[in-house]
Design a binder for these strands. Structure first.
Lengths: 239, 239
DNA sequence: TCGTCAATTTGGTCTATACCAAAAATCAAG
DNA sequence: CTTGATTTTTGGTATAGACCAAATTGACGA
């Protein structure tokens, strides 16, 4: 599939991209409205939107529903092996992190969780859902399941910080091994709603299983990231 | 942003998704044409396309330019730490892999590569571009740079197999450490063209730096994957 | 049987218009 | 100054039509 400048929406795309690259529009700033870009570019609104969608998947801009289009801030770098916690590594990159606990409840182990935790069905588990933001933009939703028998009373703690440090400090639970799965995905339903984005936008799903020194599963975590907000960096020794 | 069934394009999406999930349309099969789906659903073509775009970012369907929409096959699982090679792990998952060498040339080290390889500017490097396919669908483009002084004559070898094993067998070069960067990205320009997809579709960029036992950079590799074709799985010990 | 060329089908792009609901801005009242 | 209601703006959805170029199909001829 060729491109070339014969395609109008790519021309509009380039115009907007140039204004961002040139510093006329800075990260976090709002773009002119679609109808304004339409008259500026002398094209139909559909064509303007085509260009905006293009820039969106490139991670250059993002949208707030019915509010407008904004210039994306740079992504944060995330190393799943260095799990010193979201708050600290976001701050280390000069950004302002925020964690909100959306819900925390005690649940019972179902078949799937029994498989993951090697625990009997019906065993107590904690289920925590959190939203994490950078510079006031929600960037990920995480759904955490913890073996309640290992950390009784966990959900009575304040969980708006690092969960790992709570487990370490208050329960003496250290993580010895991590299994991490990542896959590009579409952000749908509840996740899209909580991230306040249009359902169907691309994202990255990160699934982490944490084991203690005895090989027992301590925590199972699934994160849904905005596609434009992170860069994963892993440094590993080959086995 | 709520959805609900009031949105027509989500209704059309669900209809098509149901036909796929129900087995009426199988992986690799072509969907009815947009104009056909339009009359079946009693909606405008734009609405049908909206539904198709939705399914596309979800990885359920993919398109071949001006040929039609097809049901996506399942993704392959990819573990960057277990680098036994694309060919063997794709085959192990019951799929048919193919590697094509798009180009292989000797280049000289520029400033960026000098940084990465810790080599002087002007030092000889090999640059290899390959396309890799699964079941006849191109899923990734890779661009590999190798230190030519470590592997003289490398590009005279057949490179349609595992590069790692060539380095190991013919040059005695083993990889001791891997640095892997991953980020969601848009597939653009040359990459999109070589993958034969529409420029701007979401993808995953994987950047790998391979070190030998002495800590010297042997290989620098950048891969561009279709977003719907892989699942990354990493098993790591916490440091 | 095999290739060639023409006709058809298909997705890709573009215009113009319309209406809706959420968000933002404005204005009025306390 | 704050609060609440109203108006305006904004993006989101949907329709209907048009033209193009690439891909596919089918007919034809060697």
């Amino acid at each position: 599939m060729q491109q070339s400048e014969s395609l109008q929406y790519l021309g509009v795309r380039d115009d907007i991209a140039a204004r961002i690259a040139g510093g006329e529009l800075k990260p976090g700033e709002r773009l002119p409205s679609e109808r304004q870009l339409q008259v500026e570019g002398g094209v139909a609104r559909g064509t303007v939107r085509e260009a905006l969608f293009q820039l969106e998947v490139e991670g250059v801009i993002y949208r707030k529903d019915r509010s407008g289009w904004y210039v994306s801030p740079p992504p944060v770098v995330y190393d799943p092996t260095r799990w010193e916690g979201f708050m600290s590594y976001v701050e280390a990159q000069g950004r302002r992190p925020l964690t909100e606990t959306l819900s925390k409840t005690e649940i019972v182990c179902d078949a799937m969780m029994a498989q993951i935790f090697s625990r009997p069905i019906g065993a107590p588990l904690y289920w925590i859902r959190r939203r994490r933001s950078i510079d006031d933009r929600a960037v990920l939703i995480e759904s955490i399941v913890v073996d309640a028998s290992l950390a009784p009373g966990l959900i009575d703690h304040d969980l708006d910080g690092s969960l790992t440090s709570v487990l370490k400090t208050d329960y003496g639970i250290g993580v010895a091994r991590n299994k991490v799965d990542m896959r590009p995905c579409a952000l749908l339903g509840q996740e899209a709603e909580d991230l306040r984005i249009k359902s169907g936008l691309p994202g990255l799903s990160v699934e982490r299983t944490c084991y203690n020194a005895q090989g027992r599963v301590v925590e199972f975590d699934r994160e849904y990231w905005r596609h434009d907000s992170l860069k994963v960096s892993v440094d590993i020794r080959v086995r």
